[in-house]
């Protein structure tokens, strides 16, 4: 079954036609990388998947996006419920000014969980899934700000995992990190693939080729090519894709 199925998606920021007739089908437990030059619409598309663009005034969308077969833009959809199903990790690590434990517990608490044993189990499990446990197990009650940038980003991933999402969206998750931390995040993405479907936006083409099963190339609001990553990086169909990935762009 398709976990994400975007059909004829058009998106506007006021008068600006940011996405033009996007069609993407994503299978379960795959990693999808979205690449393209700045302003091509890849981040905009990512943020449509958990309705983060709702926060911006004057935007308009047509077409439909189905997550697990349900149209997430249907009028009766509860956005907070959708966001539990589709988690997100941002470009800059943004842990809350709370302890490491409370950061991960936050998503559970705001969603009405009060069972402390359950919360504790879930928190530990999520930190372990985010490959952070060994580094923080002795300081769960210390501030999240005391962690390094790479650790903070993995904490943010743990935080997203705690509410058991089906899909994890990552918006350039390693762009603010050093190479070692970046490598750890990439390893983590490979591990997480077993349990989650991941859509990642990245400026780093090598990263896209390393972590993803399928790659989509966006240019000027259009999805120029969407195919297996091996195909895109050895023999892309479109000339425009080839120019971009070989760095002959612009």
């Amino acid at each position: 079954m398709l976990i994400i199925d975007a059909k004829n998606v058009d998106f506007y920021y006021s008068d600006f036609h940011a996405l033009k007739n996007i069609n993407i089908e994503v299978e379960k437990n795959k990693v999808i990388a979205l690449i393209g030059p700045s302003g091509c619409g890849k981040s905009t598309f990512l943020r449509l998947l958990n309705r983060m663009n709702d926060l911006i005034d004057g935007t308009r969308m047509t077409g439909s996006i189905l997550v697990e077969g349900e149209n997430i833009y249907a009028p009766n959809v509860r956005v907070d419920e959708l966001r539990k199903k589709v988690g997100m990790v941002f470009q800059k690590p943004n842990p809350f000014p709370k302890t490491i434990f409370e950061n991960v517990a936050y998503g559970l608490r705001v969603n009405g969980n009060t069972d402390n044993t359950f919360i504790e189990e879930r928190v530990i499990e999520s930190i372990k899934s985010a490959a952070l446990w060994d580094e923080v197990k002795d300081k769960l009650n210390k501030s999240a700000f005391a962690l390094s940038g790479g650790q903070q980003q993995r904490l943010c991933i743990a935080r997203a995992l705690a509410i058991s999402p089906k899909v994890v969206l990552m918006d350039e998750p390693a762009s603010a990190l050093d190479p070692i931390s970046t490598a750890k995040i990439e390893e983590l993405i490979y591990e997480l693939k077993k349990d989650y479907t991941i859509v990642i936006v990245t400026h780093n083409m090598q990263q896209a080729s390393r972590v993803s099963d399928k790659t989509g190339y966006f240019y000027l609001g259009e999805l120029v090519e969407f195919d297996d990553t091996t195909k895109i990086f050895t023999n892309p169909k479109e000339y425009s894709t080839q120019n971009y990935i070989t760095g002959r762009f612009g």
Partner: peptide
């Protein structure tokens, strides 16, 4: 340079 696509080929 980790060439890709036509460069790699």
């Amino acid at each position: 340079y980790q060439p890709v696509a036509i460069d790699l080929r």
